[in-house]
Simulated scan of single mutants.
Amino acid sequence: MGFIAFLILGLIAGAIAKLILPGDQAGGWIATMVLGVIGALLGGWVGSAVFGVGLENFWSFQTWIVAIIGSIVVLLIWGFFTRSRHAH
């Protein structure tokens, strides 16, 4: 997959992850979509290492699933760190 397609995938996966996750994550939509790109990268890396499913084909259902799951994981980690920082 090309770089631009990967960025688009990550941005959309981040937006979908934000819609799926309950609560208010710090950072707004722009930060969420940037974290979505990071999550898509993480999801693709873990997906290819563990399940043999990477981010090779933009239109593949499996590509979108691993990108969205990766984005959700990154957003959960981000929410954990930003929430604990604001609590003190």
Score class of each variant (00 low, 15 high):
M33I: 15
L75R: 00
I12F: 05
W64I: 00
A17Q: 03
W78E: 07
V73G: 07
W45A: 09
V46P: 01
G39H: 01
I38Y: 11
V74P: 01
I69R: 01
F81H: 05
I30G: 15
W78H: 09
G70Q: 03
G54E: 03
Q62W: 10
T82D: 04
V53C: 05
G10N: 04
E56M: 14
K18R: 13
V37A: 02
E56G: 15
M33S: 13
I65C: 00
I30T: 14
I12C: 02
A17T: 06
G23M: 11
F81E: 06
R83D: 11
R85P: 03
V37T: 09
I68G: 01
A15H: 14
V37I: 12
L35Q: 09
F6H: 07
F80E: 09
V46L: 10
L7A: 06
P22Q: 06
G2I: 08
A67Y: 01
M1K: 05
G28L: 07
L76R: 13
A17W: 01
V37N: 00
G43Q: 08
W59E: 08
S71L: 04
R83I: 11
A26T: 14
L35G: 07
I30L: 13
T32Y: 08
L76N: 08
I8W: 14
N57D: 13
R83F: 07
T63Q: 07
V73K: 05
H88F: 07
V50P: 02
A49V: 07
W64Q: 02
F3Q: 03
I38F: 15
T32S: 12
F6K: 08
I16K: 09
L35P: 03
W78V: 04
F51K: 03
Q25I: 11
H88M: 10
L76D: 10
G36K: 02
F6E: 05
I4V: 14
A87L: 13
T63R: 04
V74H: 06
S60Q: 10
A26P: 15
L11K: 00
V66G: 03
F3S: 04
